[in-house]
Amino acid sequence: MNASSSAVLGAPATSAPASALLATRDLTVSYGAKEALHPTSLSFRKGEVTAFIGPSGCGKSTLLRCLNLMNREVVGCTMGGRILYRGRDILAPDVNVYELRTSIGMVFQQPTPFRLSIAANVAFGPRHHGLAASREADLVERALRRAALWDEVKDDLKKSALALSGGQQQRLCIARALAMEPEVLLLDEPCSALDPISTFAIEETIRDIAASGVCVIIVTHNMEQAGRVSDRCAFFYLGTMVESGPTLELFNAPRTQRLSDYLTGRFG
């Protein structure tokens, strides 16, 4: 959607513009001895939606889990290279991962509401980071509104979150992440377990969240979805970032044979 930014994604470190909020520089990930992600350099900016596309097993989730250091919870996983967040390398040993994750939120493939009430689910993060109880109701409402769930659940806030439908649960998880007021929101195939109507609702939500200034990164194996929600795209194949750029450009004029094969459905 933003033609002037075509050089940003995948640009080398030295020329990364100041507007890049988050960037990877020659980032690699290994599980044990096996390198699952080969050196990757990408930049992500506020207010934009970036989609990771590619066949399954190509390393999209692996890269996404680096960005909030969730890979630290995976046994045997090591990361190399650099990840710059606000210009600072978050792979440095002195970085507080818990604090980092309060500003880089994540939503998983399967909706994961806790066995708590709807309101308690949304307030879960803030409560553990010292939110005053008096502000809780406001915050819950705002997060649920941003996730486009408020109207459906406003009378049932005390009810169990597990009673919601799959699509509602996923939007609740988005609201739960938004309650932390993150600068970056990571979504790993958030719609793969959902029906088309829920999927559409979540795509709308994602556009709104980006419009409010959040840097959104979404993994998807669905080309149409990437086309609908993303401003920029990065295509992965067998652990390598093959091509990246504005979504429209990438889809209309792929530079590599691999991507053009993938787009025409020859594999994947």
Binding site: L100, Q110, R115
Partner: peptide, 27 residues
């Protein structure tokens, strides 16, 4: 207790003990 709930808690910046107390034991 599904691992997904633990990860959900970690992703919100909770520590291991916070996760054990508020998610694992509670659930």
């Amino acid at each position: 207790v599904p691992d997904a709930w633990r990860n959900g808690s970690y992703a919100l910046g909770c520590t291991k003990w916070q996760t054990i107390r508020s998610v694992v034991v509670r659930s």
